[in-house]
């Protein structure tokens, strides 16, 4: 998946996450994570995001994550939406959604 613009999804409300993604100027993946549960789930969240990027074949992305204690399912939904928006894809590719 190729990110052609900025994609954003989510909110800053409790138990949600706001994710902003765009292509990386150095063609790599960089995750900026701010989380209220960073100490206890930071590594877990990073790993989850890396997995999703890999599955969706995103090789160049600057991912900004402002996490308010979202569960895995919420993080996944928000990230996938942000990626679709950034890639300019209007309809869901169901086979890519797990």
């Amino acid at each position: 998946m190729n990110l052609i613009r900025t994609g954003k999804a989510g909110t800053l409300e409790s138990s949600d996450v706001m994710i902003t993604v765009k292509g990386h100027s150095e063609n790599r993946v960089e995750i900026k994570l701010k989380s209220i549960v960073e100490k206890r789930f930071g590594r877990h969240i990073r790993r989850q995001i890396e997995d999703i990027l890999e599955r969706m074949e995103v090789n160049s992305a600057l991912v900004d994550v402002d996490d308010r204690g979202a569960l895995d399912c919420v993080i996944q939904a928000r990230l996938e939406t942000a990626l679709y928006r950034a890639a300019g894809i209007q309809s869901l590719r169901w086979e890519e959604i797990q």
Partner: peptide, 16 residues
């Protein structure tokens, strides 16, 4: 009640 978070989130998405 963190209504500011709701408002700012909404405006941020609109700006996006």
């Amino acid at each position: 009640l963190a209504l500011t978070n709701t408002i700012v989130s909404h405006l941020e998405m609109e700006a996006y």
